[in-house]
Amino acid sequence: MDQVDRAIVECLKANSRAPYGDIGAEVGLSASAVKRRIDRLVEDGTIRGFTIVIDPAAEGRATEAYVELFCRGNVTPDNLRRMLTAVPEVVGAVTVTGEADALAHIRSADMPSLERALERVRHTAMVDHTRSAIVLSRLIDRSA
């Protein structure tokens, strides 16, 4: 990716529905040149897709927590992925360094549903215990 590609990607990150002409005006190219570059970025896998971002509160998932998972024995990432995929409130999960084996991001409608999701995670054979941090407010969110 060159600087122009990066500028196009930044425009798409701000508004993936922006017309090619508007992007071209921003980066100094014609609409057709922008389209060709975007097509190439999609074709080579740099751009993996286009999506919408919905306010979690509008979907009834305003309560969120980050949960550290401490597992028994040696647990593979595939086993953790299967277990966490079965809990629909888990919206993201990663393996991590440090004391915990993994970190799960959970979103739910309210505290009782968050507690039920945590119980489903805790009651699997591979999880010894968890440590949770409930989100009070978002300071920065660049995931969109």
Rank of each mutant, 00 (worst) to 15 (best):
residue 142 R to I: 05
residue 123 H to A: 13
residue 119 E to Q: 09
residue 49 G to K: 10
residue 75 V to G: 07
residue 79 N to A: 14
residue 77 P to L: 02
residue 84 L to D: 05
residue 130 T to F: 12
residue 107 R to A: 12
residue 138 R to E: 15
residue 144 A to L: 10
residue 54 I to N: 04
residue 32 S to Q: 14
residue 14 A to Y: 05
residue 10 E to G: 07
residue 18 A to H: 00
residue 32 S to F: 02
residue 110 D to F: 09
residue 140 I to W: 00
residue 6 R to N: 08
residue 108 S to V: 05
residue 54 I to Y: 12
residue 110 D to R: 10
residue 92 G to P: 01
residue 116 R to H: 14
residue 131 R to H: 13
residue 79 N to T: 10
residue 25 A to G: 11
residue 51 T to Q: 15
residue 111 M to Q: 13
residue 141 D to Y: 00
residue 62 A to H: 08
residue 89 E to H: 06
residue 8 I to T: 03
residue 144 A to F: 07
residue 108 S to P: 02
residue 102 A to C: 07
residue 97 T to E: 10
residue 135 V to L: 15
residue 64 E to Y: 03
residue 86 A to Y: 02
residue 60 G to L: 00
residue 58 A to R: 11
residue 63 T to R: 14
residue 36 R to L: 13
residue 8 I to K: 01
residue 101 D to N: 13
residue 39 D to P: 06
residue 58 A to C: 02
residue 104 A to I: 06
residue 66 Y to N: 08
residue 94 V to E: 14
residue 79 N to R: 13
residue 129 H to V: 08
residue 100 A to E: 00
residue 137 S to C: 01
residue 139 L to E: 15
residue 130 T to L: 15
residue 47 I to V: 14
residue 45 G to T: 07
residue 20 Y to P: 02
residue 5 D to Q: 10
residue 81 R to P: 02
residue 8 I to C: 02
residue 100 A to W: 00
residue 63 T to M: 14
residue 24 G to T: 06
residue 137 S to R: 12
